[in-house]
Design a binder for these strands. Structure first.
Lengths: 328, 328
DNA sequence: CTGAAAGCGCTAACAT
DNA sequence: ATGTTAGCGCTTTCAG
């Protein structure tokens, strides 16, 4: 692989001139420029990012932290981030933390030692203390999950309101016994969605039973299956279920398994509108988050932050998508 | 962020010595070493990857090319690649090409100009001419999709045999009218799976009708829905369908839509065993590929190749997973 | 066992 | 308009 020196020599100019041509500087004669361009073509030259990045002390890489790539909720967000990043000549590094702090640390260090220019975190399990520390000196954006009252800019939706509307939808359909399949309430989104759930029930003077609130360890399909099995064994079975993630809701749907029908026996609402949710039988009523847009905005915000601009947090609109699992 | 000079100064040694400590060189007195380590801790020093990489002309980054992150087939493979890579101090950069050549080019250039050390391609749409060119001077491994008779090492399964077994399974269940939902036969895997399909039919003297072979543009759910709708409109409807991807099979299942039942009216077999395939109703019979292992091996092979070792291609075993969509 | 110094490939300030 | 040169942070001969 040729380097800038060889091009300079081949073109009979200095490396500075080659660099100028490479960076589209104005002050180069057309003739000189063309000499350089010919040399570049001749030697099939590609400028080394390594050299350029070292010199500029930037990597044009953004890190995207997420707990696991297997939750389809993230894929559309990632698409948004990726497309926006690429349009601005950035690349993204997808970082699965598996909720392991030592992995997280690897990625934080990449930012500290200039291997990456900034981080978008979508990981609810992220160590906020470390992240805040990092954010003091490096660009950091939170996407979807955020810290209430924290100083790191975020893009998210109003989870409380969305949950409230989902549950209200169930109530309007005549359900009075509504269960919640929640994830761990150490996560803010889980607390917010529970709050929305409770607000709706209270507003309609419906009882809130601890028995009807199930907490899952993770967001996999299997956790939803498990949750629904427990709910179905209750003496007082719920007539409807709100699950805080489509993956859980789909698992819940699966657990009905011939014994019960949705929505006639049990109505179900999910959250996220992942692509699977329209492929289930019955199709799943859910809250749609503008995932793609969220990703685009997160990337935009990060790039602003990298330029040193001050960025404001953004709360996006969501939408209730009504399908067969509540309106068979 | 402190640099190596400041550490050297703080510790009262030369930068060379600091570098030796950093790289666990043997020839450093315990006392000197400890002086340096104290300085490192003191200044919270992280060696700059940028400097190190430029010097070593390596990036410890591997590129993973895939057409789209939204096909869940890839997620387990990626997990395998990622875990293996991280265990060896490499990181992976997920590269969605969206089947766009210009995107592909960005990533090829990253390898050419040392921003990445090698490529694992899982993209069936990849430009093999360019990839072969790249492979002449850089480590490249193919995963899942490969080139017959090509020179780039690959890890894959025997698609022809898997398809043969899937269709034979349908035949053994008494099906004589078996359709194929295939993707574009410009892809090798599509041609191989079709070959397996035809071999099974021929072996049992069953007819092969062009009408029963549908080609989809992509592998999204919607393409499967569309395909099945067409098949259901045929005068002579098939009694079973083999789809070359779970996403297509799940779409096909969805298209039955109350009018027909699987497996009583139409049995369906998919391919890949994505996690959602056990959540559908009915659950999906499918071919399970050892995706995680495939990913691990691809990463291992790439690292071998980066060390300059010669690597051999590998064909892994698959497995037919029988579920409700054929054995209700 | 440790230090001095060259150099990886590039950009930008300064000089011409 | 173009060239010269320092230096980004690191590793690695080569000396001592």
């Amino acid at each position: 692989m040729a380097n800038i020196q060889q091009i300079a020599k081949e073109a009979g100019v200095s490396v500075a001139t080659v660099s100028r041509v490479l960076n589209h500087a104005t002050s180069v004669t057309p003739e000189t420029r063309s000499k350089v361009e010919i040399a570049i073509k001749e030697l099939d030259y590609q400028p080394s990012m390594l050299g350029r990045n070292l010199r500029n002390s930037e990597s044009r890489l953004m890190l995207v932290l997420l707990p696991s790539i297997s939750n389809p909720f993230y894929t559309e967000i990632i698409n948004g981030i990726q497309n926006t990043a690429i349009a601005h000549n950035y690349n993204i590094l997808l970082c699965e933390t598996d909720s392991k702090p030592e992995r997280e640390n690897i990625y934080f260090n990449m930012v500290k030692n200039k291997l990456a220019d900034g981080i978008i975190s979508m990981d609810p399990t992220v160590n906020m203390k470390w992240l805040n520390e990092l954010a003091e000196n490096h660009p950091v954006i939170l996407c979807s999950e955020y810290e209430e009252g924290g100083s790191i800019p975020y893009v998210t939706i109003n989870s409380e309101l969305a949950a409230y509307q989902a549950v209200k939808h169930l109530i309007k359909l005549g359900n009075e016994k509504i269960a919640l399949i929640n994830s761990d309430e150490k996560f803010l989104y889980a607390r917010l969605r529970r709050a929305g759930y409770e607000r709706a029930l209270k507003e309609f003077n419906l009882p809130i039973y601890d028995e009807w609130i199930y907490h899952t360890k993770e967001l996999e399909f299997e956790n939803g299956v498990q949750a629904m099995r427990i709910l179905l064994q209750l003496e007082e079975k719920p007539s409807a279920v709100f699950a805080v993630s489509d993956t859980l809701a789909i698992g819940a749907l699966k657990a009905l398994n011939g014994g019960f029908e949705a929505p006639s026996d049990i109505a179900i609402v999910g959250f996220d509108n992942i692509s699977f949710s329209s492929m289930t039988n019955p199709t799943l009523t859910t809250i749609s988050q503008p995932m793609y847009k969220m990703g685009c905005l997160a990337a935009d915000m990060l790039m602003s932050s990298m330029k040193g601009e001050k960025v404001e947090s953004i709360v996006l609109d969501h939408e209730l998508i009504i399908r067969e699992s509540t309106m068979g």
